[in-house]
């Protein structure tokens, strides 16, 4: 796993270093393409990412796509997850660097986000039930999970017929895993606590 992450990181760095040079050149045919969709509203479909095998989201972007908020509903079937789990999540994504444009494609090399998810079901508690536990017995929630997210997005904004679509990738780790890593730096590492999500966005 460590090798894999080093490999991906290296690729991302190489790509980030090389692409701006290209991006600065004026793209000759960009004017001929469809203009990007201006709507701030979108829907998303996501694979993995701690909120189900598949999840669907609706959201809106602000400040010229610098900030995005999403509401997701995810489902994990028992055949895949060993247990049937339904989850909802709120995701807030901030794009700190400008998209790199190359021909008809824009690439956001860095997207940062936070996510709070809620798992449905009687066996999960958002807050410790007072009739079951003394005050602050565990000190954590089993239904609510916070996560931090790091990823990127390829936007097909000026590609004919695909101009509503973007594909994103996102490495996320829950607060529980991050605390575990901080307390166990020898055994745990970023490769063990970060997991990948893949998704598609469609502007409405």
């Amino acid at each position: 796993m460590k090798q894999l992450y080093t490999f991906i990181l290296a690729l991302a760095v190489i790509a980030a270093l090389r692409l701006p040079a290209h991006a600065q050149q004026p793209a000759p045919d960009s004017a001929a393409q469809d203009s990007p969709i201006a709507s701030p509203y979108h829907v998303k479909a996501q694979f993995a990412g701690g909120i189900g095998f598949l999840s669907a989201g609706v959201g809106r972007s602000f400040f010229k796509d610098r900030l995005e908020t999403d509401l997701f509903l995810g489902y994990l079937p028992e055949s895949i997850g060993g247990d049937r789990i339904t989850t909802t999540a709120i995701k807030i994504t901030y794009v700190p660097v400008k998209a790199l444009k190359y021909k008809a494609i824009s690439w956001q090399p860095l997207r940062t986000g936070i996510q709070v998810s809620y798992t449905f079901g009687d066996e999960y508690f958002a807050f410790e039930p007072h009739d079951k536990y003394p005050k602050s017995y565990y000190g954590f929630s089993t239904a609510l999970h916070g996560s931090i997210l790091l990823g990127g997005q390829v936007d097909f904004a000026r590609v004919n017929k695909l101009n509503r679509f973007a594909a994103y990738y996102e490495f996320g780790s829950s607060v529980e895993y991050i605390i575990s890593y901080v307390q166990n730096p020898k055994y745990l590492g970023p490769g063990k606590i970060f997991n990948l999500a893949l998704g598609v966005r469609m502007k409405l």
């Binding site: 993995a48 701690g50 095998f53 994990l76 999500a197």
Partner: peptide
């Protein structure tokens, strides 16, 4: 690579 390590569908998945 092993997808089990890379993708996590849910923190309470039993894979």
């Amino acid at each position: 690579s092993s997808c089990d390590d890379l993708f996590e569908y849910h923190p309470n998945q039993i894979r």
